[in-house]
């Protein structure tokens, strides 16, 4: 806190609002969805592009369905992460630059309300996106999964939440939409290269493997591969999903810390 002496707001105000209010969170989520509804082209792109990519991929690997299984399952986890990262980083950046964030933080809105509202709205969108992509891959494109398609959906959803969290966090460091888009190669591409999509992680140079061990997308892809190969929920699957969920919560918390009521 940079404020000193009596102008410091007292932390123990009697009428201070609760840190999270369900009604304010829901109102925020509804508002974000309403904004999206006025922009049908963005919704169409968010939902259709992953499906088109999977469709393309299926026929790129027309001669080797095994390869499609491995890459397709990994991509089901990666698409929601990337889409939600982009959407959230731009949306929250717009909130910062348009002055609405300053206005909201001068109102009785908790930071957690705002973040949970965004996570809820984009989470709903991610459910639709993941359900369509997973359904298309499993039923129409013949993606061969040994485990349950519901587990694929669960991992996809957690990945979407992680993408939302990363986007929110990164938007604090971007001064313009131009910079925000540039954060995608900076934050997402290294994870994409190291997550095991191109080569199994143990086959990488040991230093890279060690780095991949601390990147959350690696566990997203590992989790997808567990579902791909095992009929039941394995211990590794539980560990992978917990790590992805834990990272999402951690980054969301860091994101909340970047929202300052008082700014220079």
């Amino acid at each position: 806190m940079t404020t000193r002496t009596p102008a410091t707001p007292s932390a123990t105000a009697p009428a201070a609002p609760a840190p999270v209010s369900a009604a304010r969170t829901l109102a925020t989520a509804a508002r974000v969805l309403r904004q999206l509804r006025h922009d049908p082209r963005s919704i169409a792109l968010m939902i259709l592009v992953p499906c088109v990519m999977l469709f393309l991929l299926r026929y790129v690997f027309d001669g080797s369905p095994r390869t499609f299984d491995a890459i397709g399952a990994s991509l089901l986890g990666i698409f929601p992460l990337i889409t939600m990262f982009l959407v959230t980083s731009i949306a929250t950046l717009r909130e910062r630059t348009s002055g609405t964030l300053e206005r909201l933080l001068a109102m009785p809105l908790g930071k957690a309300d705002l973040i949970a509202g965004y996570a809820l709205a984009f989470g709903l969108l991610a459910i639709v996106q993941s359900a369509l992509a997973t359904g298309l891959a499993v039923w129409a494109l013949g993606l061969d999964v040994v485990g349950s398609a519901w587990l694929l959906l669960l991992v996809a959803l957690l990945d979407a939440l992680l993408g939302t969290a990363l986007g929110l966090f990164v938007s604090a460091f971007a001064a313009s939409e131009f910079q925000a888009v540039q954060f995608m190669p900076a934050v997402i591409f290294p994870q994409l290269l190291l997550c095991g999509l191109f080569t199994p992680r143990p086959a990488m140079q040991p230093v890279l493997e060690a780095i991949s061990n601390v990147l959350p997308m690696s566990y997203a892809v590992d989790g997808m591969n567990e579902v791909l190969r095992h009929p039941d929920i394995t211990g590794d699957f539980v560990r992978d999903t917990l790590i992805v969920a834990g990272c999402a919560v951690l980054v969301l918390t860091l994101g909340a810390a970047t929202l300052r009521r008082r700014t220079a």
């Binding site: 404020t3 002496t5 102008a7 933080l105 001068a106 700014t263 220079a264």
Partner: peptide, 9 residues
């Protein structure tokens, strides 16, 4: 209350 680095009363 949105300005940082405020001192005085």
């Amino acid at each position: 209350g949105t300005q940082a680095k405020v001192t005085g009363t």
